[in-house]
Design a protein around this nucleic acid. Structure first.
Lengths: 252, 252
DNA sequence: ACCTGAACACCGTTCAAGT
DNA sequence: ACCTGAACACCGTTCAAGT
């Protein structure tokens, strides 16, 4: 966008026609200037392709064809990179305008969308661990959730704390899933990809427990390992929203 | 316990009388044999004193007066050490015998106790991230939760998934708290320990937002930052248990 | 069987020096 | 102002060698 600025650095010789598009330097173009945006782009690419653990200040630097120290002119720390990645991602979430008759379904849908966001950006959930949601994207989501709760007649205190609760639950599920996926992907290609599923193994393990000490776990092994991630998540958000409705009046 | 075995390695000279007690080597005693127990002990001490990040295979080895490679004769990986630490900790939790008339209060109490456990062992929550609860301690807790749900007339499917939900929620809160605590502790002693509280800052930040774009967040800043960790947790477990009661019949 | 030293392939961050 | 090389103080894990 600010092409004039970029050209200034090589004001020599006749006019050079740049054949390459802005964000896409040709194979032998002069090194592109480092910017926060390029660092975040690289981090998101790396995360999508190789997972959260593959994103380090050093791998980031390598992807940007420079040394790790150079990044510190633009970001303060690895933590800030994670924060910026999360901000970028959370901008993708759109919260619907409140519809009073459907406030509960709307709350559940926002939570589904939050999980979908984490899934669409594998690794992002791990960056979110213990992050205080100060970015504009996260605050926009909160604003939207509060509006839906308000339309549903939920008390302010319950609405406010519910935002916390919903965010904590969704990110906990997302992190759990991310670690599962990572473990599955890091299984050496030759080896069995665990495909009879960890569920099967878990179920077998539970059934093999001493029935005298674990009567319920052994007899309920099937139901305990029933359903996929989506089934469990649907249960979770149903519990959360039904619970919110139930306790709303006692928190005002 | 198997002292005979231990003596065998230095069967020379007259009988040596061991003055030191089994787990308590004197200042100049021969190096104590490495065991999984000693490794787990050291990991828990290190974690309690300096936090999760201070526990590494190398720091562990140093604490045990050996090199990192030596640990691998007893444990397969850092992950296994974390698993073992968690097993040890979860053994501390006692789940009460079910009392049908108080099933909801009992569920909440078990969740309070789970959080208290993580708090009593600072850093343990971070070890629990993404851990599949295969230890006997975790399974005992599940058995207890299932018994309480059963006494409360909750359907098996809802009970089973609720165990997951409760564990995910409590550990998410514990991890969040642990990261907070860690950040507070790692503030350089000279600097302000943030004591007007992050809550204050967060509240100020929310109030400073453009009211046109964030009408609810700005006007509800006070209520959004209200309460301490316990207040929020009480709200969370109230929502969970009330929600479980509400949806139980639709999941059977 | 258990322990060791040394090495391999990594981390995040700092800092003096360059342009 | 921005970038760099080199260094500091770390990681988890492996492996050949010792006892």
């Amino acid at each position: 966008m600010t092409d004039g600025k970029r050209e200034k650095s090589w004001r020599a010789g006749p006019v050079r026609i740049r054949v390459t598009l802005p964000g896409e330097p040709g194979p032998s173009s002069p090194k592109e200037r480092l910017t926060v945006e390029r660092i975040v782009d690289a981090a998101m690419d790396l995360m999508a392709e190789q997972g959260y653990d593959a994103v380090s200040m050093r791998s980031l630097a390598k992807a940007l064809d420079t040394g790790p120290a150079s990044l510190y002119a633009h970001v303060a720390s690895k933590e800030e990179v994670d924060q910026l990645v999360l901000d970028r991602i959370s901008a993708e979430l759109v919260v619907p305008a409140p519809d009073p008759g459907r406030w509960d379904e709307q709350l559940r849908q926002v939570m589904r969308d939050m999980l979908a966001l984490y899934r669409r950006h594998p690794g992002s959930a791990r960056a979110a661990i213990g992050m205080i949601p100060s970015g504009t994207g996260a605050l926009r989501t909160m604003e939207g959730l509060l509006a839906i709760c308000d339309a549903g007649g939920i008390s302010p205190q319950a609405s406010a704390w519910f935002c916390d609760l919903a965010a904590a639950y969704v990110s906990a599920i997302a992190v759990e899933e991310a670690i599962w996926v990572q473990r599955a992907n890091s299984t050496p290609p030759g080896e069995e990809p665990d495909h009879p599923a960890i569920d099967e193994q878990l179920r077998a393990m539970m059934e093999a427990l001493p029935a005298a000490e674990f009567p319920l776990v052994t007899s309920m092994a099937a139901v305990m390992t029933a359903g996929d991630g989506d089934d469990r998540f649907e249960f979770g958000i149903a519990v959360l929203v039904a619970g919110l409705r139930a306790v709303s009046d006692t928190y005002r």
